[in-house]
Design a protein around this nucleic acid. Sequence first.
RNA 1: GGCGGCAUAGCCAAGCGGUAAGGCAGAGGUCUGCAAAACCUUUAUGCUCCAGUUCAAAUCUGGAUGCCGCCUCCA
Length: 488
Amino acid sequence: MKKDFYIYNTASRTKEPFAPLHDTVGMYCCGPTVYNFAHIGNLRTYIFEDVLRRTLLSLGYTLKHIVNITDVGHLVSDADTGEDKMEKGAKREGKSVWDIAACYTQKFMENIRDLNIQNPDLFPRATDHIPQMIAMVQELERKGVTYRTGDGIYFDTAKFTAYPDFARLDPASIRAGERVDMGDKRSPTDFALWKFSPPGVKRQMEWESPWGAGFPGWHIECSAMALAYLPQPIEIHCGGTDHIRVHHTNEIAQAEGATGKPFVRYWLHGEFLVIDKGKMAKSGGNFVTLDSLKSRRIPPLAYRLFCFSAHYRSPLAFSWEGLAGAAQSLVNLRRDLVAGAKAPSEPADPGNAENLLKDFYAAVCDDLNMPQAMAALWDIVRNEKISPAERRAAAARADDILGLDLLQVPEEEPAESFAGEKDAAIRLTSGRPLTDAQKREIVEKVRQRQRARAVKDWGAADRFRTELTQLGATVKDRPDGTAEVAIQ
RNA sequence: GGCGGCAUAGCCAAGCGGUAAGGCAGAGGUCUGCAAAACCUUUAUGCUCCAGUUCAAAUCUGGAUGCCGCCUCCA
C-alpha cells in the first residue's frame, strides 16, 4: 500500500509529495572517495540514504539504486598546483593508487555492512567509466559549452544560463579570485571537465583521450555514471549538504548541458555531524571512525540509532556521552522486546501491526522524521495495553526501515578467558589490555571476595569490592554465584 | 562579500499558531547482605533576548546577540 510520502527537495526548497514518473525509481547517491577511512560523519549521510531506500522499498516502490565509488584522484585545489588526493594517500602509505583505492573501498564496504546499510544495486567505480565521461565531454564540446586552457577542458558556465538557479547563486556577487584560484578560467564558476597530465609527469592514473593523456574532472563522473545506468530524468539524487553549491550544481550543468533535458527531479541532502561545534572533517583531525567506536565496545548499530536522534536535515552534535546513551537505548529497546517474548501471548496479527505503526509511518513519510518515528516506536514498545506478540510484530515491521536488528536477543558480552586462569565462577571482560600479573591480581581479589561472601563476611567482601574498584574493576554478582568483572 | 541554517531541561533532540514528544543521564522508591539488574514514580509555568501581530506564539513579523555550514577536495 502506497502512503503519501513527502520529501524535501533542495531544488524547490520545499517539502513535496513524492510522485515518480517511472515504474522503477532511479536513485543515485554520491559515494565515497576512497583515499582514506570514512569517518562517522560521512557514514551519517549513508545511513540517511539507507533509510530513504528502505522507506521507498517498504512503501512498495521498485528501486534501482546506485552508489558510486570515486577511485580516481581529485586535485586538492582548483588550480594546477595541488596534490592529487589518491596520489597523496599512496605516497603516505607507500602503495600504488590502485592499492589505496582497493583498500579503502574494502574498508568502506565493511562499514556499510556493520551499519546494516543495504547494498545498492550497483557500486560503479569511476575508473571503469572513463569512456562514458569522455563521451559526455565530447558531447559538451559539440554543444559549444566548453573551452580549452593550458591545463584542461573547462565547462563555460556563462553558456548555461540556468547555472545559478539550483544553488540560488547571485552571479554578480561571485567575485573572481576571492577564494578560488582562477588559473586560466574565464569565470570563477567554470570547472574542469578533463585535466591534462602535466608535461613530463607520468601519473599513476591517467588515460588517453581526444585531448591527450589526462584524467577526468571532479564532477563528470557522477553525471556520466548516473545517466549510464538510470533513465533521465533521474528521480532521486542524494548527497551531503556540502555538495549543493559546487558538485551538484556542476553535475546539473554537465548533464543538462549535454542532453538538453532535466537531469534530476528530487534532490535530497543530508546535514553534517558536528563535533565541538564544527563539522567533522578528515582534514580537521577531529574525526572518529567506526573502527574506533568498535574498539570502545560501542556497537555500530548504536551509532545508527544515534543518527535517528536528529532529523537528517539538521546538524547532529556528536559526543561520546550521547553515543553511549544511544548504545544504552538500543540495549533497552531490545531488552523490552525480548521481555515481551517471554510472557505468554497469542499470535500477532500482521494487520494490527500496520495499524499500531500508524504514527511511525506518518513520521517516516513526513520527510523521514526519524526522531518522531522513534518516539512512536517507544510508545508501542512500552505500551502494556498491547500484547507482547503484537509489539514484537510491529517492531519487526518498523525494523525494515530502521535496520537496528531490534529483535536480536541481547547477547552476553563474550567473556575473555585469561591466560592460565580457567575459573568458571569468574567472567572477565576488559576494555583495555592487561598484563598477566594485573589479571592475576584482579582474579585473586575476586576470589577472596567470593570466599568472604560464602561465609557471609560482608565487611571483608565490601573491602575487596572497594579495592577492585580502585583497580578499575567493576564486579557484578549474578544469581548463580558467578561474578562478572568488567575492567575499564 | 554572496548563499543557507541554527539557538527548546544535565546531554542528544522533536514540535513550526492552540497551551512543551521521545531517548540517555539524574532523583526518590520497591527489591537484593552491599552493589548490579529489574520494576514503579519523578524531572522545562517555559523554549537566547527585545518589541510587535493574534483570543492564543517555542511556533508568525521586525530587531538584537551568539553559533555553524557552503562558496576550495569534502557526507
